[in-house]
């Protein structure tokens, strides 16, 4: 049961990796990277049940949080073309 879930996750990971390698646009890659993070979370969950010790589920949740923060940073980069240094950019536009 969990083995089937793990195999399905692996297939999904390979598909996402192909999209990540092939591109073609940056948005494909952002989406693929975010999706791979989600697959990591799911795989840690499945791995716990596969080994009969589902103690690491809370850690999988923390991975989800990291993934979320990373995606926010990437999207902020797309929106403003800078991460934290908005001050200089506003000054340049004046």
């Amino acid at each position: 049961m969990f083995l089937v879930a793990a195999i399905a996750l692996f297939i999904a990971m390979v598909l996402v990796l192909i999209r990540l390698y092939a591109g073609p646009t940056l948005y494909d890659r952002v989406l693929a990277s975010n999706s791979f993070g989600t697959h990591t979370v799911l795989f840690i969950g499945v791995l716990g049940f596969l080994n009969g010790r589902p103690d690491f589920l809370d850690i999988a949740l923390l991975y989800a949080l990291i993934n979320f923060v990373g995606t926010i940073a990437i999207l902020k980069f797309f929106r403003y073309r800078a991460i934290g240094d908005m001050h200089q950019r506003n000054g340049a536009q004046k």
Binding site: L17, L20, L26, S33, F36, T40, F43, L62
Partner: peptide, 27 residues
């Protein structure tokens, strides 16, 4: 694209650490 791939590389390394039961290192 290299930055995205590096982040995925790190996630894969973390998964390998989890399979080795080194959950804290993976995190």
């Amino acid at each position: 694209a290299v930055i995205m791939l590096a982040s995925v590389f790190s996630l894969l390394t973390a998964l390998l650490f989890v399979t080795l039961d080194a959950v804290d290192v993976a995190f």
